[in-house]
């Protein structure tokens, strides 16, 4: 009797442990998908310095309206463009203001060729200067997405419905915009399905998961997330551990175990919620 009681307790504890710490099938799947990206286990590798002329910050897509580099929708084009050129915009701003450079030697060694390219690509970047930003916004004044993005105050359930409809049709890069909206909605409506799935009452943490989850899905759907993408170059400028890594490698290399598991749960939740 005593033995069987011990056995039952042992099995129960093991089951609870597996439930708590074990990877769900969905988690396994996403972790495996990250695993497919072979290079992530390599340590941060110093990139060979390339001459500036070999570095191309933008790979223009064909068939877009004049003045657009990324998308036919002016708002989407604007936000992706600002994101893409964030490294150069930040660099030129610092250069103009004569502020001291705050990058480590490793960051500078990696980013200098890209900074040199910024100097030569100023003309393309001027598509995203203040004048053109205003023009693009004026041209899209009646766009529902713009209205949603610019909405002041908390997003309501009707907004949430619009976001869901919109996200379903989104292309890779656009998912970054969805991330901002979803994060904003969940932050205010803290009792939500994601909070339940993560078992987390911390709205800031959950928002961070949404942001990373959407970025991960955008990368999977074809957004440029290579080590030389706008996404990763800006991260390198912010955190030297990101220099030379693609997004998958970066997340895998620096994230802690609990974070990775929660990220996998979040990706599952996003896929399920937005039918992606």
């Amino acid at each position: 009797m005593k033995k069987s009681l011990v056995l039952i307790i042992f099995v129960a504890v093991a089951w609870v442990m597996m439930y708590q710490w074990g990877d769900s099938p969905e988690t396994q799947q996403i972790l495996q998908e990250i695993d497919k990206n072979k290079a992530y286990q390599q340590p941060v590798r110093p990139e060979p310095r390339q001459p500036a002329e070999e570095i191309q910050l933008i790979k223009p897509a064909s068939g877009l309206p004049q003045g657009h580099l990324f998308d036919e929708n002016p708002v989407v084009d604007l936000i992706i463009g600002l994101n893409h050129f964030a490294l150069c915009l930040g660099h030129l701003k610092v250069k103009d203001s004569n502020e001291p450079v705050k990058l480590s030697a490793k960051q500078l060694a990696y980013l200098q060729p890209y900074y040199d390219a910024c100097e030569t690509e100023q003309k393309i970047m001027s598509l995203y200067n203040q004048n053109n930003i205003m023009l693009k916004l004026q041209g899209a004044a009646n766009d529902d997405r713009l209205k949603l993005l610019m909405k002041v105050g908390a997003l309501n359930t009707e907004d949430w419905r619009l976001i869901q409809e919109w996200v379903v049709d989104m292309k890779a890069q656009e998912l970054l915009l969805a991330s901002a909206l979803v994060e904003r909605y969940l932050f205010v409506n803290s009792e939500n399905d994601l909070a339940t799935a993560l078992g987390s009452r911390d709205a800031r943490y959950n928002g961070m998961m949404v942001e990373q989850g959407f970025a991960l899905l955008a990368c999977k759907k074809g957004m440029d997330c290579s080590h030389s993408s706008g996404l990763m170059l800006t991260r390198c400028a912010d955190d030297e551990r990101a220099c030379g890594l693609n997004y998958f490698e970066y997340v895998e290399a620096i994230s802690l175990s609990g974070f990775k598991r929660d990220l996998a749960t979040t990706v599952d939740w996003i896929k399920h919620t937005f039918a992606l």
């Binding site: 078992g199 987390s200 911390d202 943490y205 802690l256 609990g258 598991r261």
Partner: peptide, 13 residues
């Protein structure tokens, strides 16, 4: 009240 099991695991680490 606040941290989930995964969050606590990372804090502990």
């Amino acid at each position: 009240d606040h941290l989930s099991a995964h969050q606590l695991m990372d804090v502990e680490y």
